[in-house]
């Protein structure tokens, strides 16, 4: 009996020992798994953007693009985020919505900009989406909703139209997990504070859009895909309490107004 026990323990140790020793090697680097993942994400980002570009109208107005670019650049600079990673696209659509696609594509609907009471509110929403990109929530969500195998097959078989459309729809009109949303909100507030942008208007914006009057409008996609907006507004306020009070605006009032004017046209 003792012999069996000793042999059994040695066998178990042998297995776990092999596992442990083997785990010390950086297999991810050897098999270039990270590179493969990055390539898949890049291809997916391109595929989704192609689909959106075909079905929606991109706004290439210089004033609009430059203004949003200033906001994003400012946020990235203050938070040491690689600016080249974020690719901004403004689409002409009444929906109050913004969302992130794989490989750093950030889609902003003109409806969101026009419905933002202040540039700080819009900056908050942008920060929230950048946080999703930085925290790799986009790929996590896609893998969870569609599955890695389908995603890889999408990149290797030149799309497969309907599947790509369906996946793009998931990203534009469905929420992340509650925990991921909160994580992105908190990260967004950190981004705002580091860039010296007041986070309060962002919380107010959430509060306003969750109002019944707004809820009944069919265009508020960003809120319908981000549930519990009141609760979110509350914890954003709570979290930003006691942080720095000296805030600044990224865009001048004139530029902000002119951005809205250009989008109205």
């Amino acid at each position: 009996m003792k012999k069996i026990l000793i042999q059994g323990i040695v066998t178990v140790f042998l297995f776990f020992g092999t596992w442990f020793i083997s785990a010390q090697i950086d297999w991810i680097k050897i098999f270039k798994i990270q590179q493969m993942t990055d390539k898949t994400e890049q291809k997916l980002g391109e595929l989704f953007w192609e689909v959106l570009k075909k079905n929606e109208k991109e706004n290439k107005n210089t004033c609009a693009v430059t203004s949003i670019d200033s906001i994003v650049t400012n946020i990235c600079k203050a938070n040491k985020i690689d600016r080249m990673k974020i690719k901004i696209h403004i689409l002409t659509k009444d929906d109050v919505n913004a969302f992130a696609l794989p490989n750093g594509h950030l889609i902003i609907y003109s409806g969101l900009i026009l419905n933002s009471d202040s540039q700080e509110a819009l900056t908050g929403v942008i920060c929230h989406e950048i946080a999703h990109i930085e925290l790799n929530h986009v790929m996590k969500k896609l893998v969870k909703e569609i599955g890695l195998s389908v995603l890889i097959s999408m990149t290797t078989s030149n799309g497969g139209g309907e599947v790509v459309k369906k996946a793009a729809k998931i990203l534009s009109s469905s929420a992340f997990d509650r925990s991921l949303e909160k994580e992105a909100d908190i990260k967004a507030v950190n981004y705002l504070i580091k860039a010296r942008v007041n986070p309060e208007p962002f919380a107010d914006f959430l509060y306003k859009l969750s109002d019944k009057e707004y809820e009944s409008t069919k265009y508020v996609t960003w809120i319908s895909t981000h549930p519990n907006s009141k609760e979110r507004a509350e914890y954003i306020i709570e979290y930003s309490k006691g942080k720095i009070t000296e805030y600044k605006s990224i865009l001048s009032l004139k530029t902000w107004n002119s951005l809205k004017e250009k989008l109205k046209d």
Binding site: W19, S22, A23, W27, F31, V143, K144, S149
Partner: peptide, 22 residues
């Protein structure tokens, strides 16, 4: 790993290698 948000890690590859050896 295939169907959920779990990702491939060194630990996973090491486990598969140990399983293959055994």
């Amino acid at each position: 790993i295939i169907f959920t948000e779990e990702i491939i890690t060194n630990k996973y590859i090491a486990y598969i290698i140990a399983v293959l050896i055994f």
